[in-house]
Amino acid sequence: MMDLRPAEWVRHAVLHPAEGFEDMRWKKAGSLKIAFFIVFMLFFGQIADDKLYGTQFFIPYDRVFNIVPYIVMSFVVFAAWVTGNWAVCTLLDGEGTMRNICIYSAYALIPYTVQLLLNALLSHFLIRDEAVFIEVIRIVGIGWTAILLFSAVKAVHQYTFAKTVLAVLLTIGAMLIMLFLLVLFMSLMQQVFGFLFTIWTEISYRIRV
């Protein structure tokens, strides 16, 4: 019973929002490789969503291309989610390991990623009057991912419904704190760099004179 290959587990988890992740946990299935692949596709999905839409819908400002926002919107946010969830749920008697949280969360992101890529593709075939298709696909994708993510947290930590809600809210709080600290750290680094650079400039002037 339930002897599935890794790729089939992905399908099973995505298509069975209620008990898919429970089955995965029971069978100790899930592949870290596939998880990373999904996050990587999310990264491309975010770029496609912003830059590769059909001209009839949106023409991006393509004079400059800054990759950092897309990295943040995929890798950084995902990493913050996984770390935050792990940190919170360790305190809340969660049973999930970091590896499992990472795998289950990544699997849950599939509908969202597919939606991003599918819409970017569809926007080249549809006209503005038919934008409602894109909108429906987006809503379905986001909703599905939300349900899956909830189910993933519930399964990986073996929580009740109420406790999962609490865990998700706390995780979002933890993510915000982490991002805040990150920004703080970056601005600190900037100032330290500026300070060192000034010292270097002063010294180099003295040496020359």
Partner: peptide, 10 residues
């Protein structure tokens, strides 16, 4: 001109 492009594409 997205609107014109849209019509042309249609």
């Amino acid at each position: 001109a997205g609107r014109i492009y849209n019509k042309a594409f249609e």
